[in-house]
């Protein structure tokens, strides 16, 4: 005889699960909360309870040229990575969906590999390439690294949406006299549009945040995470809390923007497919 739960047990089980979920969320959000609270703490980082609410750290931050320079660099890197990621990720998704060529399986695995590979391996292997090719490290090398590592994001997102595009849609278009180019822009592209936007947003955020690959490929100009990293080594300051809070707010805004888009496109694509492996 197996276990049989009574209605009472069952409700208790549900309550236990809910309590558990609340604790887990507390764990997930504690650091974020601490970050935000202490970005306005007059006494600096740490020290409980926080007191002396202040915006001093923010005003210090706004006068900090090095930080803003690195923010600018990060945005340039992220935008360029989005371009590379889409320019290669979309064709790669099309190729995986509709072409057959020798080594296709290996190709698929290779494209996806950087997403699940510790950044240090991607970073170091490219570092060796650049050194052998005598390429000086700069933001350009960081862009190459990010772009290459994040092609997989565009590929997974777009591939998933292509899987939902019935082949007959494109056949109907060809049948009606549209050539491949017209068919791509009139049928395939509108279908992929939302997944492309999702991929662009994801690549942008992942690149803005990326540190492990940048760590090895950076030249003189710092990206924001590396700038923060450099300061962390010198010691903790609430300025970092302030910039982190700003990044967090921007991330939230990005998610919201994405949701507005998604509601308009009604379930055309699921976000964060990148986290699921390709079928």
């Amino acid at each position: 005889m197996g276990l049989v739960m009574t209605q009472n047990d069952w409700n208790r089980g549900r309550i236990a699960l809910a309590v558990y979920a609340a604790l887990l969320f507390a764990f997930l959000y504690l650091p974020v909360l601490v970050l935000v609270v202490y970005s306005c703490n007059g006494q600096g980082v740490g020290g409980f309870p926080p007191h002396n609410f202040t915006l001093r750290w923010y005003s210090l931050l706004f006068q900090d040229d090095a930080i803003w320079r690195s923010v600018g660099n990060s945005i340039v890197v992220a935008l360029a990575s989005v371009l590379i990621g889409l320019a290669l990720g979309i064709p790669a998704a099309l190729a995986l969906d509709r072409a057959s060529f020798p080594g296709k399986r290996a190709f698929r695995r290779l494209v996806l590999l950087p997403l699940v590979l510790p950044g240090i391996i991607t970073g170091l292997s490219l570092l060796m390439l650049f050194r052998e090719a005598d390429v000086k490290l700069s933001l350009a090398t960081v862009i190459l690294g990010h772009g290459t590592a994040l092609i997989s994001v565009a590929t997974t997102e777009v591939y998933a949406s292509l899987q939902r595009l019935e082949r007959v849609q494109e056949e109907a278009s060809l049948d009606l006299g549209a050539n491949y180019w017209q068919t791509f822009w009139r049928i395939t592209f509108p279908h992929m549009r939302l997944s492309i936007i999702a991929a662009a947003l994801l690549i942008f955020t992942l690149s803005i945040d990326e540190i492990a690959v940048s760590f090895f490929l950076i030249g003189r100009e710092n990206t924001l995470p590396l700038e923060i990293w450099g300061r962390l080594r010198r010691g903790i300051t609430p300025e970092i809390n302030a910039i982190s809070t700003i990044i967090f707010v921007f991330s939230l805004l990005t998610i919201l923007a994405w949701y507005r888009l998604r509601i308009r496109g009604k379930g055309e694509t699921e976000p964060f497919q990148a986290a699921e492996p390709l079928p």
């Binding site: 019935e166 009606l176 050539n179 009139r186």
Partner: peptide
Amino acid sequence: VNTVFQNYALFPHLTVEENVAYGPRVA
């Protein structure tokens, strides 16, 4: 040669009119 597909394969993102106009437009 044109085809009426099984399950019709109408383009979901286009209106009825745009669906019908598709062929002449691309031509």
